[in-house]
Design a protein around this nucleic acid. Structure first.
Length: 111
DNA sequence: TCTTTGACGTACA
DNA sequence: GTGTACGCCAAAG
């Protein structure tokens, strides 16, 4: 992969997240060596604001498995609805069995 | 240019 | 378990 802007890398990783699985900002940031999980959130914020609606940002949650960024979506419920639509149980804005559904970006290298 | 803010995470009291 | 503090880096004002 060529050197791209950090947000493009985040887009790529986010798109590689398998359906029904989730990951967190820290994992992506560490995988891309961004040095800060905030960069991931920043990129995702730009992604939803941009015309790029292909970014499954709803599969990215914080370390606790909480849907911290749902307010940034078109509608606050879109994130939860999308996850539940993929088979991910969400209760009280948190992913159920987050530890079990967690997906490591490092899996991309295995593909 | 400096300051503030942010979809975070870890450490510590 | 909760609240505070700090690091991290980029964008916006």
């Amino acid at each position: 992969m060529k050197e791209q802007s950090y947000f493009e890398l985040v887009y790529y990783v986010t798109q590689q997240i398998p359906k029904g699985r989730v990951t967190n900002y820290g994992a992506i940031a560490d995988y891309l060596s961004l040095g800060s999980a905030r960069m991931v959130g920043w990129a995702l914020t730009q992604s939803n604001k941009s015309k790029m609606g292909n970014i499954p940002a709803h599969r990215v949650v914080n370390r606790k498995g909480e849907l911290s960024g749902r307010l940034n979506f078109s509608t606050p419920t879109l994130m939860q609805e999308s996850l539940e639509s993929e088979g991910v149980e969400v209760v009280n804005d948190k992913v159920v069995d987050f530890d079990g559904l967690f997906w490591h970006p490092q899996e991309i290298d295995k593909l």
